[in-house]
């Protein structure tokens, strides 16, 4: 009898709990996730940028056919991850968004992920429409322009977001470890 009563009380109490779960706390005003951006990943899955809330992430921009700098961006992401232990790596997501709205469809992104043996369980390669890419770059302070020959001129930056989408650190060091950046990742992952 007491158990049933406890169960009923528990059920009553759980209603506002689940209602609260449906309505998350408002995003901080300085969160990158304030940007309402539609993305499609290498497996043709559609998602919104704000869906990534809840886990610290590394963000960068690239394009699949890039001959020199973008392979180096992927290498740098790998080098950076290698500085972390397995638990830390699992707690960190990676999002790479393409500049190349014309050529980087899900198939092109998937081909690159295969070629570079990217673990798409933890890393997402994604595309957005042209206006969305321009806004995403603007919010991250990344510069880029399309060139006549189909290449892009762009700045190469890794950006660390905390779980709420606030920019916690950025690094323009490419091809080697940026110790201050790695320290900041550990700090952000260390937060309970």
């Amino acid at each position: 009898m007491i158990r049933i009563a406890a169960l009923i009380i528990g059920m009553i109490l759980s209603v506002p709990m689940s209602a609260r779960a449906v309505q998350p706390s408002p995003l901080p005003g300085d969160s990158v996730y304030q940007l309402d951006l539609a993305l499609v990943d290498q497996d043709a899955r559609s998602f919104r940028l704000a869906d990534l809330r809840g886990k610290p992430r590394l963000l960068t921009m690239f394009y699949a056919s890039c001959p020199y700098m973008c392979p180096l961006i992927i290498d740098t992401l790998r080098l950076t991850e290698r500085e972390l232990d397995a638990r830390q790596r699992d707690a960190l997501g990676v999002l790479m968004v393409s500049f190349d709205t014309a050529r980087d469809d899900p198939a092109a992104l998937k081909a690159l992920a295969g070629k570079r043996r990217i673990d798409t369980g933890r890393w997402s390669l994604a595309r957005a429409d042209a206006a969305g890419v321009r806004k995403f770059a603007a919010i991250l302070g990344i510069q880029y322009r399309a060139l006549d020959d189909g290449e892009f001129s762009h700045s190469s930056v890794l950006i660390l977001l905390d779980a709420e989408g606030r920019i916690a650190a950025r690094s323009e060091t490419m091809g080697k470890i940026d110790p201050a950046f790695v320290a900041r990742i550990r700090e952000v992952l260390g937060k309970p």
Partner: peptide, 25 residues
């Protein structure tokens, strides 16, 4: 495209520093 107007302060800088910072041309 205000964030596309990457301008080299000096054209003589077209060597390595730019190559490291900007992909492409």
């Amino acid at each position: 495209d205000f964030n596309a107007l990457m301008v080299s302060a000096d054209n003589r800088e077209q060597g390595d520093p730019d190559l490291m910072k900007f992909c492409g041309a």
